[in-house]
Simulated scan of single mutants.
Amino acid sequence: MKLTLNKIVDSKVYKSKKGMLIQGNSIELLQNNKELSKLKGKVNLIITSPPFPLNNKKQYGNEKGEEYKDWFIKLAPIFSDLLADDGSLVIEIGNAWEPERPVQSLLHLECLLGMVKHPEANLRLIQEFICYNPSKLPSPAQWVTVNRLRTVDSYTHVWWISKNDFPKADNSKVLRPYSKSMEKLLKRQSYNSGKRPSEHQISEKGFLKDNGGSIAHNFFEMEAIDEKRDVRLPHSVLSFSNTNSNDYFLKTCREKGITPHPARMSGGLVNFFIQFLTDEGDLVLDPFSGSNTTGYCTEKLNRKWVSFEVKEDYIEQARVRFSDPLLKSPLKKIKV
């Protein structure tokens, strides 16, 4: 699949070695631009963190309430058309709260149900993941820090969706390190087999093979819950959290006096799903890319990518991200 850049009209396009960032409304462009219709059925992974259904407008743009739900559900057939038959859609979304009430909204759940039940999309929820971040600021602030009626909302949902019961996936590519006790067991080559109180029958040799790590969980602990216990994230996730102040992108933003996008998707999360659900050379798309963490991670992992972003400020932040000398693949503006 090769796009003819001069046919992506009314848009600024920025290219790297592996992908392109298109400035504009992704949904309008994907629906109406004939050149972008070439993407249909070719995308192996759509991964994105769309604007959350918050009660207050944010600078990165977001709808509210029923308007948000209608907007979200209409994405279903658009995304389904883009996906290859064994492709995946991964969406990170936060919780919502009822306006001026200490009551959690069902809006995000209604969005999920509306998407997977859309009659024109043929989608289904493959698995839900939870991304826990103990460094998140206390929210909803009114009910946590002012009135002190609720606990901190400290996690986001990550939905893995596909139009096939068996999308491309390989959990052996995203193994997490073995625990210290498992490392000792493998070295010792013995353990207590037999029947457990749970009635599971543990075989004599079932846990003696070294597979290079243990199978990842669907819970991402971005920082340690217990400081005395090692966080065993998959190697692909590493410590790529939004609090990593030594990150090249954040360091350069500080030097240039740039305020980074306030709702950046975790690079570790993006790394995980790219490695879990795609192969080198596959195509990854992010329709709401912000500062383009998705494109950056995809480039480093040797996949092709297409990202969209409306705001000029965030396009410039993406260019900062791609100026990383270790990447050696700057985003260059193309005349179209």
Rank of each mutant, 00 (worst) to 15 (best):
M1C: 03
K7G: 00
K15L: 14
M20A: 15
Q23T: 03
N25A: 06
N25G: 04
L29F: 11
L30W: 04
Q31P: 00
N32D: 12
S37E: 14
K38M: 10
K38H: 10
L39S: 07
G41T: 08
K42M: 08
I47G: 06
I47Q: 06
S49W: 08
Q59N: 13
G61A: 12
N62Y: 11
N62I: 10
E63G: 01
G65N: 13
E67K: 14
K69S: 10
W71Q: 07
W71K: 11
K74F: 02
P77T: 09
I78R: 00
F79D: 01
F79V: 08
A84K: 13
V90E: 02
I91T: 10
I91Y: 06
I93P: 02
G94S: 13
G94D: 05
N95E: 09
A96V: 03
E98N: 05
V103C: 02
S105P: 02
H108E: 15
L113F: 14
P119C: 09
L125W: 11
Q127W: 09
Y132N: 04
S135Y: 10
K136C: 05
L137R: 12
L137V: 08
S139N: 09
A141I: 03
V144W: 04
V146D: 05
L149H: 07
T151N: 08
V152P: 00
V152R: 13
D153Q: 11
V158F: 05
W159T: 00
I161Q: 01
N164M: 03
P167N: 04
S172M: 12
K173E: 01
K173F: 09
K173A: 03
L175R: 15
P177S: 09
P177F: 07
Y178S: 05
Y178F: 14
S181G: 04
S181A: 15
M182A: 11
K184I: 12
K184Y: 11
L185M: 15
L186V: 12
K187A: 14
R188C: 00
Q189G: 09
Q189R: 15
Q201M: 12
S203W: 07
K205P: 00
K209T: 15
D210R: 11
N211E: 13
G212I: 11
A216S: 15
H217P: 00
I225R: 13
D226W: 09
R229Q: 14
D230P: 04
V231W: 04
R232D: 07
L233Y: 04
L233E: 06
H235N: 11
N242C: 13
T243R: 14
T243G: 11
N244W: 13
S245F: 13
L250S: 11
C253T: 12
C253W: 12
I258C: 12
P260R: 12
A263P: 07
M265S: 01
M265I: 15
G268V: 10
G268L: 08
V270N: 02
L277C: 10
T278S: 13
G281T: 06
L285P: 02
D286M: 07
P287D: 05
T293D: 02
T294Y: 02
K300P: 00
K300Y: 05
L301S: 02
L301F: 00
N302H: 10
N302P: 00
K304I: 00
V306A: 04
F308G: 02
E309Q: 05
K311E: 14
E316F: 08
Q317N: 05
R319C: 13
R319D: 03
V320E: 01
F322G: 03
S323R: 07
L326E: 15
L327A: 07
S329R: 07
P330W: 04
L331V: 09
K333H: 10
I334E: 15
